[in-house]
Design a protein around this nucleic acid. Sequence first.
DNA 1: TAGAAAGATAGATTATTATCTATACACATA
DNA 2: TATGTGTATAGATAATAATCTATCTTTCTA
Lengths: 308, 308
Amino acid sequence: MRHHTTFRQLEIFEAIARLGSFTRASEELFLTQPTVSMQMKKLADMIGVPLVEQVGKKIHLTPDGRELAQATREIFSILDRYTMSVDERRGLKQGKLSLMAITTASYFAPRLLGEFVKLYPGIDVSLRVTNKEQVLASIADNLDDLYFLGQPPEDIDVIATPIMDNPIIVLAAPDHPLAHKKNINLERLAREPWLMRERGSGTRIAIERRFAENGITIHPRLELGSNEAIKQAILAGLGISALSRHALTLNQPDQFAVLDVEGFPILRHWYAVYPAGRQLSVVARAFLDYLLGREESPPTSPVTSSTP
Amino acid sequence: MRHHTTFRQLEIFEAIARLGSFTRASEELFLTQPTVSMQMKKLADMIGVPLVEQVGKKIHLTPDGRELAQATREIFSILDRYTMSVDERRGLKQGKLSLMAITTASYFAPRLLGEFVKLYPGIDVSLRVTNKEQVLASIADNLDDLYFLGQPPEDIDVIATPIMDNPIIVLAAPDHPLAHKKNINLERLAREPWLMRERGSGTRIAIERRFAENGITIHPRLELGSNEAIKQAILAGLGISALSRHALTLNQPDQFAVLDVEGFPILRHWYAVYPAGRQLSVVARAFLDYLLGREESPPTSPVTSSTP
DNA sequence: TAGAAAGATAGATTATTATCTATACACATA
DNA sequence: TATGTGTATAGATAATAATCTATCTTTCTA
């Protein structure tokens, strides 16, 4: 019968079978009822057996008709599955990926993105690097696919997947008296002049918590609004601070002394974040899987911040 | 994709997949190669991914193409199975059944056939009643669907299914001296003048075998060529004989005395016979099943006569 | 009995599919 | 380089599928 029937006829037949009515099938398919009637006559004539029978005003499927309805559903299911399968793979051949990262994450995000694009050359990618406020605003507006953050927001419902270690290390000027000491304790360190990011910064909270665990309170000598400003203040001899190791650029490690302090580095993570209700595109899903499949991935599972 | 593809396109694609060549597929389908090429371009464009790739002169299926070939085979398999299923059932709604029977079997065959036709009114049936020689000739020529015989031929390779009991009873004239005796023994019976069918007749063989088992030889007084002639001779007082109970018509039982003889009735069967290599039609198969499903069916299985 | 509801049939039109011939392009081989 | 093999593209035609409007037929219900 594949030589003589058409998918359209089978579609019309399946609608009749489901709705139990020629008229309702014609409405669903935006056809006139005579069209439906004629297509069914053609189909039944072609197969050679009645497919429906009419008792009064009601129509019922014959056993042959019921069997054909079942066969039709199987066939459509096979085709739909194939189409979805292709659509998924095509989504990885063409598509867009839009990322947003806070400034510090920009020291590794371009590299990750570059590796991914090498695998899937047909995908268009964009990466915006900006401050945390703008990242959070963009998350709330659901403007991008994924966001890189060192601390998932707690007032927005997001899915946050840890993708990389984010160690917080203590930095001092290279000629700092503690530069070559080993195993510096926290009390000794607390007596140094501290340079800190603004209150609310994830890094600052982690540092203060680490000292508080040892009954120590830090009083910053200076608060600065960016990691870059802090780095410059350290080099100018204004004090010490603790920053993400990723805050150091490739040519900066030798400019600073990384102090060997008990309780440091504080081990934190970088997270790939997206709003909780968002359906990730095939590409975004693939990128996230790619990040998780890299050798530096952490073993933990996604963290969902609490719903307000 | 069911909204835009056609079974024809899938057929062409499946042939390409199987043969690994556009040109060979076009030959198999009696098309020109450009037709095949264009249909495949349409299909691939519609789906949105390449289905075949060409390396030099060879074509290979892409993974997407392989998956579609598999899906296509599944779909065709579903449709073919449905079509075959319908064809079977339609074979019972319309069709022909051609039967042939020896004369004696004509006393029950029309009734069986009539009952079957009541169940399947759309089936055209024919029943020819003739002598055994013509039945055997017809079997050899494979001219009819089924044949009714009391004794399957041994020189033709047939399938013979017992369908009914065929008791051989001893008949005498109503005023015969043994008419009311009970439990007549074979020696007493052997002294009567016997009327017999021609040598080779299955009934005659069965009778002679029954007497031989008791060390008795029958010498017929008269040999006659038909059961009707034998019945008339019995009524004329020329002797006794043993015939199939089915040889008596509905209004004949009271015209004859059925003798109560030890060793009688001899229990034989009626067989539905067809040549061993013949594929029974749906209708013939259904009729045979119908015969076997009747309450008077014997419990035994088909007998195949020996292959020469 | 009249009217409504549901499917069937006739006639016609439009859109789409299927296919062909002719030719171009690409690759392999002698 | 010439030739053969295999697929792709352009242009055109014929056949078929799909659909509509108008009307008919049958059944049900008030």
